[in-house]
Amino acid sequence: MDETGKELVLALYDYQEKSPREVTMKKGDILTLLNSTNKDWWKVEVNDRQGFVPAAYVKKL
Protein backbone atom coordinates (compact mmCIF):
# COMPACT_ATOMS: atom_id res chain seq x y z
CA MET A 1 0.00 0.00 0.00
CA ASP A 2 1.10 3.54 -0.62
CA GLU A 3 0.86 6.45 1.82
CA THR A 4 -2.83 7.00 0.94
CA GLY A 5 -3.73 3.38 1.74
CA LYS A 6 -4.19 2.32 -1.88
CA GLU A 7 -3.02 -1.13 -2.92
CA LEU A 8 -0.03 -1.30 -5.24
CA VAL A 9 0.99 -3.85 -7.85
CA LEU A 10 4.31 -4.54 -9.57
CA ALA A 11 4.50 -5.00 -13.34
CA LEU A 12 6.15 -8.36 -13.99
CA TYR A 13 6.31 -7.85 -17.77
CA ASP A 14 6.09 -5.09 -20.35
CA TYR A 15 2.58 -4.61 -21.74
CA GLN A 16 1.58 -2.42 -24.67
CA GLU A 17 -2.03 -1.26 -24.66
CA LYS A 18 -4.13 -2.70 -27.47
CA SER A 19 -7.27 -0.59 -26.92
CA PRO A 20 -8.14 2.78 -25.33
CA ARG A 21 -9.41 0.95 -22.20
CA GLU A 22 -5.95 -0.49 -21.48
CA VAL A 23 -2.73 1.12 -20.26
CA THR A 24 0.89 0.53 -21.20
CA MET A 25 3.32 -0.54 -18.49
CA LYS A 26 6.96 -1.54 -18.32
CA LYS A 27 8.45 -4.36 -16.26
CA GLY A 28 9.25 -2.98 -12.81
CA ASP A 29 6.59 -0.24 -12.87
CA ILE A 30 4.62 0.26 -9.65
CA LEU A 31 0.92 0.79 -10.37
CA THR A 32 -2.01 1.70 -8.15
CA LEU A 33 -4.59 -1.10 -8.10
CA LEU A 34 -8.13 0.25 -8.51
CA ASN A 35 -10.12 -2.95 -9.08
CA SER A 36 -9.21 -6.64 -9.09
CA THR A 37 -12.65 -8.28 -9.12
CA ASN A 38 -12.12 -9.65 -12.64
CA LYS A 39 -9.68 -12.56 -12.52
CA ASP A 40 -8.22 -11.82 -15.97
CA TRP A 41 -8.04 -7.99 -16.19
CA TRP A 42 -7.27 -5.59 -13.35
CA LYS A 43 -7.97 -1.87 -13.43
CA VAL A 44 -4.91 0.17 -12.48
CA GLU A 45 -3.63 3.72 -12.54
CA VAL A 46 -0.20 4.59 -13.92
CA ASN A 47 1.18 7.97 -15.00
CA ASP A 48 -2.19 9.66 -14.26
CA ARG A 49 -3.99 7.25 -16.61
CA GLN A 50 -6.51 4.60 -15.63
CA GLY A 51 -7.08 1.41 -17.57
CA PHE A 52 -6.85 -2.34 -17.63
CA VAL A 53 -3.85 -4.68 -17.68
CA PRO A 54 -3.71 -8.50 -17.73
CA ALA A 55 -3.88 -9.74 -14.14
CA ALA A 56 -1.20 -12.34 -14.89
CA TYR A 57 1.24 -9.51 -15.75
CA VAL A 58 1.16 -7.91 -12.28
CA LYS A 59 1.70 -8.97 -8.66
CA LYS A 60 0.23 -7.39 -5.54
CA LEU A 61 2.82 -5.79 -3.26
Rank of each mutant, 00 (worst) to 15 (best):
P20C: 09
T24L: 02
N35P: 03
V23C: 08
K39A: 12
N35I: 08
D14G: 06
K26E: 05
E7G: 09
R49L: 06
E45V: 09
E17T: 08
A11S: 05
E3C: 14
V58H: 01
K60N: 07
Y13I: 09
L12H: 02
P20R: 08
W42S: 02
E3Q: 15
V58S: 00
L34C: 06
W42K: 01
S36M: 09
R49Q: 08
D48Y: 09
E17A: 15
G28P: 00
L8E: 07
G28T: 01
D29L: 05
W41E: 04
V46D: 09
G51P: 00
V44Q: 00
Y13F: 14
S19E: 09
K18R: 14
T37L: 09
K27A: 12
D14K: 03
V53S: 00
W41M: 05
M25R: 00
E17G: 15
T32S: 08
A11F: 01
W42H: 02
R21W: 15
A56I: 10
W42A: 04
N38D: 15
R21A: 13
E45Q: 15
N38L: 09
V46N: 15
V9K: 00
Y15F: 07
L34F: 04
W41G: 01
Y57P: 01
M25W: 02
L31S: 02
G51F: 08
P54E: 01
M25D: 00
A55R: 12
L8D: 04
R21F: 12
E17M: 12
S36P: 06
D29W: 12
R49G: 04
R49P: 00
K59H: 10
L61H: 05
L12M: 09
V9C: 13
Y57S: 09
A11I: 02
E17W: 05
I30Q: 04
E7L: 12
D40K: 13
T37P: 04
L34R: 03
K59I: 15
V58Y: 00
K60D: 04
N35Q: 10
K27Q: 08
N47K: 11
K27T: 07
D14M: 03
R21S: 14
D2Y: 08
V9R: 02
S36D: 15
P20M: 10
V23W: 05
P20Y: 09
E45K: 10
G5A: 12
F52Q: 03
K59Y: 10
A56M: 11
W41S: 02
E7I: 14
V9M: 05
K60H: 09
Y13R: 15
K26I: 08
S19R: 08
V46F: 15
E17I: 06
